[in-house]
Design a protein around this nucleic acid. Structure first.
Lengths: 245, 245
DNA sequence: AGGCGCTTGTGAAGAGGTGCACAAATCGCG
DNA sequence: CGCGATTTGTGCACCTCTTCACAAGCGCCT
């Protein structure tokens, strides 16, 4: 998880239509539900049960029902959920009704791929500008966008009304880029650089580190290897819980 | 989170030197500590306090101490942790003492970038083979590796003793690739395709979906926008959280 | 209209993670 | 040698998330 502190919570916000104050874990799963729902809609389904949607999203059906219950009662007992209605609701909650403009900084190996990734556009995000610090890369055209120098960030960010910044630079440059993004008023950052960013309060940072995912897999692999290397195979249940502290 | 069920082994035998049975949350943070430790080692630090390392890793110092305590007492009270020793311990626990071979399937936009990502090699992973289903891509050389056809997966996987598979194909192809990987004996998969994979028990799948991260950010952005639009103007300035620095 | 089967929504219990606060342990110094 | 400064390791309370189990609600069929 990343840094997420949302301070004003105790003072209940008054009469705003819907500020559901969703649990973080639920928010993290909503996009997955949304993807599954779109797939269902594309295959002609009009309604879906919690069981069916849970399977499509890879979660437990009870968890799914509790998650959806946090955004209101949009299901019909005995029937299920209306696919179209649920899509609208989730998109509304996630703030996807408006198309958000993304600035991508760092057009190296990874940044290049991100610039061409069509999963963003199909989910309502528009990559509005590309930046790099390397002058030899400035001017290059990627996917219909021209790479600009990072010094132009301030001007362009305002022009394009950027709401999310993506950092795909090498680690040493990431903090400086983050500072620039914050200075321009960006309050949401997706960081692919393998380093910790320090940002002022109110700015959300999410981190994606590809190497870390591999290391976590490595741990489980290592663990499984230790287990299968045991004498007697895995059915040997006579020795157990010998491990204390 | 991803699918992590290790149910079939209720009696996990315990005669092995150290099977700490770490909490998942701890495992997920160890790589971050490791990165911070390497950075400290490179700058000449020989020891580090929990406070110092916690700052470098972007977490709370109490959490860090508890995490490290799960792998044993490798710190010295009044002094801190020996950087080199701690690196060795964490790498040992994560199973990084041996270089793991990775097979990357799907050499499209994203796969291309992953193949060239040097963060893998620097963390002890070796991309041992590249695959694609598109014949026009087979034979292409990327970063010193030749792209092979996915039908050769079985043969090559054995030759190269692949231990982790990375799926960077379009979503519709992902399940078939996963099945092939599993058939070859791969039990750890990192999935970049936006879909749910179903795999037999004992196989670990971790999912990275770039669009989902953006959608989570979008939610918080949406939420912040709603808050600042409130009448009472309970601006977020009353609580200063001073996030990890 | 009434009953029946199906599905949602939710209270409650359980599991897991977090952070505080402090005792225990170690080092350096007088 | 003992004392104080410092830092680890951890018991405990709190909190969030998960899972179970079931009542309430809905539609269909007779």
């Amino acid at each position: 998880m990343s840094q997420h502190r949302h301070p004003g919570a105790p003072g209940r916000a008054g009469a705003v239509p819907a500020l559901p104050d969703l649990p973080e874990a639920t928010v993290a799963r909503l996009p997955e539900y949304l993807r599954a729902l779109h797939a269902l809609a594309d295959t002609g389904h009009e309604t879906v049960s919690s069981e069916g949607l849970a399977n499509a999203a890879g979660v437990n059906s009870a968890k799914l029902r509790k998650d959806l219950s946090h955004l209101g009662s949009y299901g019909t007992r005995g029937v299920g959920y209306d696919v179209t209605l649920l899509i609208e609701q989730i998109e509304s909650v996630l703030g996807l009704t408006q198309c958000r403009s993304v600035a991508l900084v760092g057009v190296g190996n990874l940044g290049h791929a991100l610039a061409g990734y069509d999963g963003f556009a199909s989910r309502g995000f528009r990559i509005a500008a590309l930046f790099d610090a390397d002058p030899s890369r400035v001017g290059e055209e990627i996917n219909g966008l021209v790479v600009r120098h990072v010094d132009d960030l301030a001007r362009v960010a305002v022009e394009e009304s950027i709401s999310i910044g993506v950092i795909a630079t090498p680690a040493p440059a990431a903090q400086a880029v983050a500072d620039q993004l914050v200075a321009v008023g960006v309050t949401s950052i997706l960081n692919f650089a393998p380093c910790v960013l320090s940002v002022p309060e109110g700015v959300d940072v999410r981190k994606v580190d590809l190497a870390i995912e591999l290391q976590i897999l490595s741990f489980h692999e290592h663990r499984k290897a230790s287990l299968t290397a045991l004498p007697g195979g895995l059915a040997a249940t006579d020795t157990q819980e010998a491990i204390g502290t």
